[in-house]
Design a protein around this nucleic acid. Sequence first.
DNA 1: TTTTATCATATTATCAGATAATATGCAGAC
DNA 2: GTCTGCATATTATCTGATAATATGATAAAA
Lengths: 239, 239
Amino acid sequence: MAQQIPAPLGRGPKRNLFTHVVASLGLRIIKGELNPALPFPKEADLGAEFGASRSVIREAVKSLAARGLIASQTRTGIRVLEPINWNLLDAEVLNWRYSTMPQAEFYGELFEIRLLIEPEAARLAAIRGSTAEIAIIEKAFAAMSEAARTGTSGVAADLAFHRAILAAAHNALLLQMGNLIAVGLDIAHRLSSESFAVFLPMHQRVLDAIIARDSDAAGNAMRHLLSETREFMSRLIWA
Amino acid sequence: MAQQIPAPLGRGPKRNLFTHVVASLGLRIIKGELNPALPFPKEADLGAEFGASRSVIREAVKSLAARGLIASQTRTGIRVLEPINWNLLDAEVLNWRYSTMPQAEFYGELFEIRLLIEPEAARLAAIRGSTAEIAIIEKAFAAMSEAARTGTSGVAADLAFHRAILAAAHNALLLQMGNLIAVGLDIAHRLSSESFAVFLPMHQRVLDAIIARDSDAAGNAMRHLLSETREFMSRLIWA
DNA sequence: TTTTATCATATTATCAGATAATATGCAGAC
DNA sequence: GTCTGCATATTATCTGATAATATGATAAAA
């Protein structure tokens, strides 16, 4: 039988059908359009809607289930799980949430966690970081400086800086929080592409404290950096 | 053609083929038996190994990919991702990791995070918690007391207590950390089934501080509870 | 009336065997 | 050497089956 023509479906990168279905359903769930109280479309219906075969639909369902968004059962069908089950730290879920929540609210939530995690991570990095690990932090900072000088985007370097600190703290669970930071930086970059240059000196202070193995100073410098960034962003959001 | 008889494969609940394949591969990846440097088996090979059709294998692959463990690409095949991409806070990944890591190491990592998160959560709960939310904390504590009195397992109530505090802190990302606590309590329970009775008074102190809206006291009480628990567990692990 | 046992049915779970898309590496041209 | 085009291996997607299972209806029993 002739292959079905994939429906054009308008916007969206649509790298492949699977990705499209996952993103589309994921977003609908996060938005609340599909929720635990409502009956979820059957595999067959989803297939018809997306112009996809059952295989693709089922793979998408498994992908969303792995993120804690839905569960499926023989005869019962698919159902949306309560938000408490959602893997909010999953990069995709994080982005879907970010794109649907009020910016200020999401940002407040995000920075509350960052302020909880990162100062302690900086403190631990100053204590536990190997010289090699600290060198990576240094290198990331150098890249940030370079980006500031040349006026190119320093988002990647900024992210690398914060991730390197998490890595130097020697706690894998802590490192996981990198996703949060990535989203946070992405927002910051969209709001103000030069913002990170302003905060370069504060990054420097964090770095110096870690190099000096001064754990308290490192923690404080990081706390200061994050507080100031939050302030700065708040002003941008409310402006 | 006759349906293939699902291989008995020995132990394991084996609720269904899909779950079995996911758990089996997930564990192998976490263990490092399958790693980024090694070529990953092809879909066809996996199918042969597990006695499963390609559909099941592909669904399992998507499920593991959603957890950040692997990625697959046309022609290139499947590959294991670097550990930094793993969703360590996913309940399954957490359990796989727990079952393969040295207990002391895992426990240290876990409590480092809990000590970071939960005192602040308790503090915020004392400030932001609605009366209804605080009532839930109270109810969980009552259930813990009851369990202690009757000698039944209080793990569920204990988990409910800590989750209720996270919920009362009004930060969805914070709530996500409940998975960590669940694993932590599970370990504690396996090591010493009566341990939670010992810590009942410390839980009471946390609860009282939250009811009294004394945020600092709540934070300190939680910190104390966790430190003592960690101490207690360390002794058990090394004994 | 209430409970328990039986059964039909709807939906996911799994299987089988296709074709399509695509990244890789090789071979040949420049 | 570098580029271009082609063959190939592997995943991506489709199609159409059969199997397993939870649900609700129905019937039987208490």
